[in-house]
Design a protein around this nucleic acid. Sequence first.
DNA 1: ATGAGTGTTTAGCTTTGTCTAAAAATATTC
DNA 2: GAATATTTTTAGACAAAGCTAAACACTCAT
Lengths: 221, 221
Amino acid sequence: MKSLTYAEENYLKAIYHLSEEGKKEVSTNSISDELKTKPASVSDMIKKLAVKGVINHKKYQGVRITTSGIEAALQIVRKHRLWEVFLVNKLNFNWDEVHEVAEELEHIQSPLLIQRLDEFLGYPKYDPHGDPIPDETGTYKLKPKTPLNELQVGDSGQIIAVKDSSAAFLQYLDKVGAYIGAKIRVIDKVEFDGSLEILVDNKKNLFVSKDVSKNILITNI
Amino acid sequence: MKSLTYAEENYLKAIYHLSEEGKKEVSTNSISDELKTKPASVSDMIKKLAVKGVINHKKYQGVRITTSGIEAALQIVRKHRLWEVFLVNKLNFNWDEVHEVAEELEHIQSPLLIQRLDEFLGYPKYDPHGDPIPDETGTYKLKPKTPLNELQVGDSGQIIAVKDSSAAFLQYLDKVGAYIGAKIRVIDKVEFDGSLEILVDNKKNLFVSKDVSKNILITNI
DNA sequence: ATGAGTGTTTAGCTTTGTCTAAAAATATTC
DNA sequence: GAATATTTTTAGACAAAGCTAAACACTCAT
Ligand SMILES: [Mn+2]
Ligand SMILES: [Mn+2]
Ligand SMILES: [Mn+2]
Ligand SMILES: [Mn+2]
């Protein structure tokens, strides 16, 4: 099993994330969207990843990640999320500042480093955005969660994760006082546009659009 | 001032280290030795670095680092050594295990990361090998030091740094109980081969060859 | 079932960083 | 000071990763 280059790791991780959300087949265009490269570049890379056995590919038919590809991707995800925990918990980064840096740090090659970092952080199970951290074997715990927009008036729960980890979205959440662990109760729902009025931590009324609420994940009750 | 690529940073740092020890002019071959690349590759890279203004070069005349080159090199050295401190002080790496990993970590681009890491580590002034850590402005404190082989019988002092940071040398020092801060007294000196008998921490007699003693740096008394 | 539109791949080019082999310049030795 | 040895540079190739433009394949609607 020859190892992956920096760019190959980024592609594989993108393919892994794309196959997670929904169907198994991942299209060339969706990969190029995700990574902001051109479809032609994706076609080239697909060939390399197929040769290394981390994906299967039939021409014009999209791409499917293999078992060994999932294993490799989970280790990259593990590193990414451990570094995010480090940045937030130890270096006082805000949760909207960690993604870019973790995107680089995840490629550092040193099993000892990751093992010790995990230990130093106290074997965290979730990253600052509520995403689960796989262990050395690739095992991770998925907490059941529901997008806020699917809750009904009167429903309540806690914010457990965010679907969108972009700086813009996280900064918005900071501004309105939403954070992982915050208590949420749905006060009112506008059927026309799917927007919600919610109560945060029993003290703050907030109006959120559907674009926002579908990116906030709530504990199942 | 356009920024440097990963490989350019490694070359510039090597040139900086080579100009530190001894003369200003650095030869193509010495760079290729240091980086284990071929002289032809060095010639290519020299052109790129000269265009970016970090070195001066006249054909067949060696290379001289510029003021702006020194500035850039010091920031890479700063990152390298801060990461080494992190690995040893926080992740319990041994001092012989840090170099390779720091060689990768030093290229992570994030001023905030380095500033916060420095703060997290308590603004260390020296790395695990006794080398000084430049601050954000490139300033650092050089402690006066003498190679152990230059001491005379009866002289004493403390180990303040090592000149060779290879794993093999550091593991040898571990084995014989030598470390940064250890007290040293020269008991006897063999003129024939320059080897020394020394007393470590007032309790351990040790025979060291000149190859070893010239790589151990002692406080000036 | 065919033609238009969309999605994917190929062809050909660029940049970065490496290499080998050969040429050119400098250094050393007799 | 000429011959030889060493060092450095150039020339040409290759792999990785990206791009644009053009060709090809699949899908869907008429
Ligand atoms: Mn990445
Ligand atoms: Mn995350
Ligand atoms: Mn390096
Ligand atoms: Mn060091």
